[in-house]
Amino acid sequence: MSRIQDCFAALSAKQHKALIPYITAGDSHPSMTVPLMHGLVKAGADIIELGIPFSDPMADGPVIQLACERALRHGINIQQVLAMVAEFRQTDQLTPVVLMGYLNPIENMGYDTFALAAAEAGVDGVLTVDLPPEEADLLSTALNTHHIDSIFLLSPTTEDARIAQIAKASSGYLYYVSLKGVTGAASLNVSDVAERLNLIRQHTTLPIAVGFGIKDGASAQAISALADGVVVGSALVSQIGAEQENQDVALAKVTAILAEMRHAMDS
């Protein structure tokens, strides 16, 4: 069993849902990322999605674009992101870490080199935003060889036949994008999500995490009633952006938001 499968199995036994925070590696300073990851776990994170910064994050809204720019100002590259994961793993062997990013930096490193280095660092899954399953065979094979899950997106526009195809290409969990838009958008419609998740579940038994538009305890609670996991990104990253001068304050604010979500989801 992979760390991700273990995680969902353990949560399911407790009848809890996964809380999955996203942060961009190296934002707002490289020294902040590993302490932040540990802080997120303490505040109730079950899985951490760690963003690999990219110069042209086309699927992201302004909050995560700016986070990428902040990280890139420190010259963050994949090797450094993997070193952060390895450092996190020294004291946390349980919490799954999923890398999230765009294909070009990974392709630039080479799929096999990347997959091997990611496995050695303790990465559990990889979600490449601009890589649909049709183009993903080579990367998925490399990741699979090193027992890393390939996580794919489903969207409100994904047609039935494609849902089955995407589910088949995926392992670990599926990430359902709750709305037509970019990260950090505001118009989450819970009943639409419920309807779509019912449809998706006809095609797969994989856990389904839902992201985009979740920003506080109330939205986390509403989605956790429907999904197996709740992803929160921009709401956390905007705090990191607002408190660049004071990392301790940023950490306190981010973990407070996450703790509030945890509380709302479990009560």
Binding site: M58, A59, L103, V129, D130, L131, P132, E134, E135, F152, L153, L154, S155, P156, T157, T158, E159, R162, I166, V177, K180, G181
Partner: peptide, 19 residues
């Protein structure tokens, strides 16, 4: 599938695939 040899293709987020 939109390829010129190894080039081309469709590398977009899932929401755009249907479009």
């Amino acid at each position: 599938s939109g390829h010129f040899g190894k080039y081309g293709g469709r590398f977009v987020s899932e929401t755009l695939m249907a479009a």
